[in-house]
Amino acid sequence: TGIVNVSSSLNVRSSASTSSKVIGSLSGNTKVTIVGEEGAFYKIEYKGSHGYVAAEYI
C-alpha cells in the first residue's frame, strides 16, 4: 500500500512507460494497493484492473 504524493493529480497509465496511454488519474493523498514494480513504475490495483504510476510519486 502506498499514498499518492502529489499536489494536483497523478496519471495512471496502461503500461510502465511515460509514452503509454493515460487511463485515468489519482488525486494527492489517495491510498493505492501496489501489486508489482517495473522499473520506475509501480503496478497498482485500479478500477477492478491494473494500472501503472510513477514510483517517485508514491
Results as ranks from 00 to 15, higher is better:
57 Y>H: 11
37 E>I: 15
14 S>K: 12
19 S>N: 12
16 A>S: 07
47 K>A: 11
10 L>Q: 04
13 R>H: 15
17 S>K: 07
16 A>K: 03
30 T>K: 06
56 E>Y: 08
47 K>P: 02
22 V>C: 08
22 V>T: 06
41 F>I: 01
42 Y>N: 01
53 V>E: 01
5 N>D: 07
38 E>R: 05
12 V>K: 01
55 A>I: 14
5 N>V: 12
30 T>C: 11
1 T>H: 13
50 H>I: 14
28 G>I: 11
21 K>H: 10
13 R>T: 13
51 G>V: 03
48 G>A: 06
54 A>P: 15
28 G>E: 08
42 Y>D: 01
27 S>C: 14
13 R>V: 12
40 A>W: 07
19 S>E: 13
15 S>Y: 08
24 G>V: 03
23 I>K: 03
29 N>F: 13
48 G>W: 05
45 E>M: 11
19 S>I: 09
20 S>R: 04
1 T>E: 11
22 V>P: 05
25 S>G: 06
42 Y>Q: 01
24 G>W: 04
8 S>C: 15
22 V>Q: 04
35 V>M: 09
12 V>A: 00
29 N>A: 09
45 E>I: 14
34 I>E: 01
35 V>Y: 07
16 A>N: 04
57 Y>G: 10
5 N>I: 13
15 S>W: 08
44 I>T: 00
36 G>W: 05
49 S>P: 01
18 T>L: 14
10 L>P: 07
2 G>L: 07
31 K>P: 09
36 G>T: 05
55 A>T: 10
8 S>D: 13
3 I>L: 10
55 A>K: 15
6 V>A: 10
40 A>T: 09
4 V>A: 05
12 V>R: 04
46 Y>Q: 01
29 N>P: 07
14 S>R: 09
53 V>W: 00
17 S>Q: 07
5 N>S: 09
33 T>Y: 10
38 E>A: 07
4 V>K: 04
54 A>Q: 15
9 S>C: 15
12 V>Y: 02
47 K>G: 12
12 V>H: 01
1 T>S: 11
44 I>W: 00
24 G>R: 01
40 A>D: 12
17 S>L: 07
38 E>T: 07
5 N>Q: 08
51 G>D: 01
38 E>N: 06
10 L>V: 15
41 F>P: 00
45 E>A: 09
54 A>T: 07
39 G>F: 05
35 V>A: 05
53 V>Y: 02
27 S>L: 14
16 A>Y: 05
49 S>G: 15
2 G>C: 11
39 G>R: 05
39 G>W: 04
30 T>E: 12
43 K>S: 03
9 S>R: 13
50 H>K: 05
43 K>I: 13
44 I>D: 00
10 L>N: 02
35 V>G: 02
20 S>K: 01
33 T>S: 08
22 V>L: 07
6 V>H: 10
8 S>F: 14
24 G>K: 02
2 G>N: 05
15 S>A: 13
56 E>H: 10
15 S>V: 06
37 E>T: 15
4 V>D: 03
41 F>G: 00
38 E>Y: 10
6 V>G: 10
